[in-house]
C-alpha cells in the first residue's frame, strides 16, 4: 500500500492509520475488502465515505474494541491487593484515567472494585476512546441501572485520539492503558508510552496489558512495581 493510499484511507476512516502497525492495518484492509465484497484497496476509501456502517466496521477492526479486564483475574488481583492499597493509603483523591477505554466495562469494573474497598466517594474516573460508538456504549453502561448509582455517577467519558491529542489534563494517580500499544507501530508506541508517563502524578501508577512492558521505564521516570505496572518516581 502506498503512503498516498494509506493517507487517503486515514482521511476516509478518520483514524490515523499511519500510527498503527502496518501488518495490523493490512489485515484490517484485507478483511474489509472481503467483508464488503470489494476488489481493490483504491475502492475501499470511496466505499467507506459512502457507507457509514461499513466505515464503523472498519474503524472497529483498526481500533480494536475489546476490554478484557473482567477476563483477566491476574491483573484484577494485582489492582485489588497491591496497586490500589498503595494508592489509597494516604487518603487522597484517586484520579483514574483509562486510556482507550473501549465500551467502558473495564473502568466500570474498577469503579465496582473501588466501591468494594470503600473508596468510590473519593475516586474520579475518566475513560477516553477514539471511537464515538464506544463512548456511546460506555455512556449507556453508566446510565444502565445494573450498577449502583454511587458507582455509576463517578464515571465520565470523552473523545480523545491519543496519537493526536495527547493526554487529558491531570495529573492522574492511576493510568490504565491495556492492549492499545500492541496495535501501534514502534514510533507511535514510544510516543504513547511517553504520553502516559507524562500524564502520571508523582507516585502515580501505570498499568499496561498482560503482554505489554516498557522497554526502558527509567527513561520515562518510572520504576517497575508489578509484572506490567510501573510507578512514577518522585521527581
Amino acid at each position: 500500500m502506498t503512503p498516498a493510499a494509506l493517507e487517503e484511507l486515514s482521511r476516509a476512516s478518520g483514524l490515523p492509520l499511519e500510527a498503527y502497525r502496518r501488518s495490523h492495518v493490512f489485515r484490517s484492509v484485507r478483511r474489509a475488502l472481503e467483508r464488503e465484497h470489494l476488489i481493490d484497496q483504491a475502492s475501499l476509501a470511496a466505499y467507506l465515505r459512502n457507507d457509514e456502517a461499513a466505515c464503523s466496521r472498519f474503524r472497529r477492526s483498526i481500533a480494536v474494541s475489546v476490554s478484557r479486564m473482567f477476563r483477566d483475574p491476574g491483573q484484577f488481583e494485582l489492582l485489588e491487593h497491591e496497586l490500589l492499597p498503595l494508592l489509597l493509603a494516604d487518603g487522597r483523591e484517586l484520579t483514574v484515567w483509562s486510556a482507550g477505554c473501549a465500551d467502558g466495562s473495564e473502568l466500570a469494573s474498577l469503579a465496582l472494585l473501588l466501591d468494594r474497598l470503600g473508596a468510590i466517594e473519593r475516586a474520579s474516573l475518566l475513560g477516553s476512546d477514539v471511537l464515538v460508538e464506544n463512548l456511546v456504549a460506555a455512556t449507556r453502561l453508566a446510565r444502565d441501572g445494573s450498577l449502583a448509582a454511587q458507582v455509576r455517577s463517578r464515571l465520565r467519558w470523552e473523545h480523545r485520539d491519543l496519537v493526536r491529542d495527547g493526554a487529558p489534563e491531570g495529573p492522574w494517580r492511576l493510568v490504565i492503558c491495556r492492549n492499545l500499544a500492541i496495535y501501534l507501530n514502534p514510533e507511535a508506541k514510544t510516543a504513547l508510552h511517553a504520553t502516559l508517563a507524562g500524564a502520571l502524578a508523582s507516585d502515580g501508577v501505570l498499568l499496561l496489558g498482560r503482554s505489554e512492558r516498557l522497554s526502558s521505564p527509567q527513561a520515562l521516570g518510572l520504576e517497575r512495581v508489578g509484572a506490567h505496572a510501573y510507578r512514577k518516581v518522585r521527581g
Binding site: 453508566a142 455509576r152 455517577s153 470523552e158
Partner: peptide, 11 residues
C-alpha cells in the same frame, strides 16, 4: 463541566 458524568447530567 466537560467531560461530564452521564449519570449526573441525567439526574
Amino acid at each position: 463541566s466537560k467531560p461530564f458524568s452521564p449519570v449526573e447530567l441525567g439526574a
